[in-house]
Amino acid sequence: MGWNIIRVVTLLVYLFMFLPVVIVILLAFNSSQFGSFPLTGFTFHWFDVLWNDASIVRALKTSLILGSMTALVSTTLGIMAALALVRYNFPGKNFIATLLIAPILVPEVVLAVALLLFLRWLELPKNFFMLLLGHVIFTLPFVVLVVQARLTGIRRDYEEASMSLGANPLQTFFQITLPLMLPAVLAGLLFAFTISFDDVTGTLFWKPAGTETVPTQIFAMLRNSISPQINALGTVMIAITVLLPLLGAALTRRLSRTPQS
């Protein structure tokens, strides 16, 4: 009886979490311009409207460029930070490790306001580079944690054996260490992209005037009315943020099973 209650409660929690998402997806294909049930017909018209809306296409391009650049910078810095924290001992190591993880512990709105005030104190205008910097600060801890966990499980003997056979540290990293931790690197890359692509709180504070991402574009559209375009744009966003992690998980699993030569 107790387990049955737990199953029912669990099912209700999942319904509460995901039913609104399902409703948004269904309404995106509804032929009616009013978001109501029952559905009056099936259509791709609202996606065609999205494609022909210059502001939405521009916001999507901005989100993809920003997410890709954030993922690239955060992953590169995350790999170097994880290598330093796992493989080397130096003064202030614990402090630096805590500093790298701190953005996860601080509420995002506090972090957004703090960075905005810091930029104003430096008398720097808001621009795309500052927006990228904010996203990197917010996503870097996730990459560090994922790569660091993987790197801890890689024995140092492999790297020492490589260098004893004549390879320099750079060759050892690219031929031994990086292939062994590649699943974690790809996971961190996808984490950084997805978090950056979905971010709305920090982006609202950091974005320059005239620059919109997909989340901020949806937020701006909601100020006027709830239109089918919002449902269609939300569906596109859901597809990107769900399919990419699934693809990354499948690729990571495949790489983990592939024997390293």
Rank of each mutant, 00 (worst) to 15 (best):
L72K: 04
L50P: 02
E160P: 08
L243Y: 09
F193W: 03
I240R: 04
W46T: 02
Q171L: 04
N4R: 14
L26R: 07
G210H: 12
T213N: 13
M237R: 05
P38V: 09
V110K: 07
A28F: 01
I104W: 04
Y14F: 05
Q33F: 01
E159F: 10
E212K: 14
A192L: 01
A28E: 03
A220S: 09
L119R: 12
A81S: 14
T241P: 02
L15I: 01
L243A: 14
V24G: 02
L117D: 08
L100K: 05
L100D: 04
V49D: 10
V49P: 07
F47G: 07
F191V: 01
N89W: 08
M237D: 05
V214K: 12
A82N: 03
G248R: 01
V200Y: 15
E160F: 02
M130N: 08
D157C: 03
A220Q: 02
S164C: 09
F205M: 07
F142P: 03
V57R: 13
K126H: 13
T76C: 15
G153S: 11
G188L: 03
L133W: 08
G234K: 01
R257G: 11
R156L: 01
L99F: 15
Q260A: 15
L204D: 13
Q260E: 13
L100W: 07
L182S: 14
V22N: 08
L189D: 02
L165N: 05
L26N: 09
V185E: 03
I230H: 08
L122G: 12
T194R: 02
A209N: 00
Y14C: 05
L131C: 03
P208D: 01
G188W: 02
Q217G: 15
I226H: 05
T172C: 14
A220I: 04
I101Y: 04
L11M: 05
A54W: 08
S256D: 15
T194I: 09
P215L: 10
R257I: 10
A59L: 15
S31H: 12
T203S: 00
Q260T: 15
R253P: 06
S55G: 10
D48R: 07
L64I: 11
L116M: 12
Y158C: 04
A102M: 15
Q148W: 01
R156E: 02
L133V: 14
L255R: 12
W46I: 05
I6R: 04
L251G: 11
R58P: 15
V24F: 07
A192P: 03
I96N: 04
T75G: 06
A54M: 00
N231P: 00
L246Q: 08
L19A: 12
A161R: 03
L72A: 09
A102D: 09
D48I: 07
G134W: 04
I96G: 02
A28K: 00
S196Y: 01
A112S: 08
A82Y: 04
G78H: 01
L77T: 11
L50Y: 07
V236G: 10
L222Q: 11
F44Q: 08
L151K: 04
G234R: 06
M163E: 12
V57N: 10
R58D: 14
A82G: 14
T211H: 09
F118G: 06
F205L: 15
P179E: 03
V144L: 03
K126W: 06
G153R: 06
L77M: 13
L19G: 04
L64Y: 10
R253S: 05
I65Y: 10
S63N: 12
T62M: 13
V8N: 06
V200A: 13
I5A: 11
L99Q: 07
I176V: 14
F173T: 07
R7A: 13
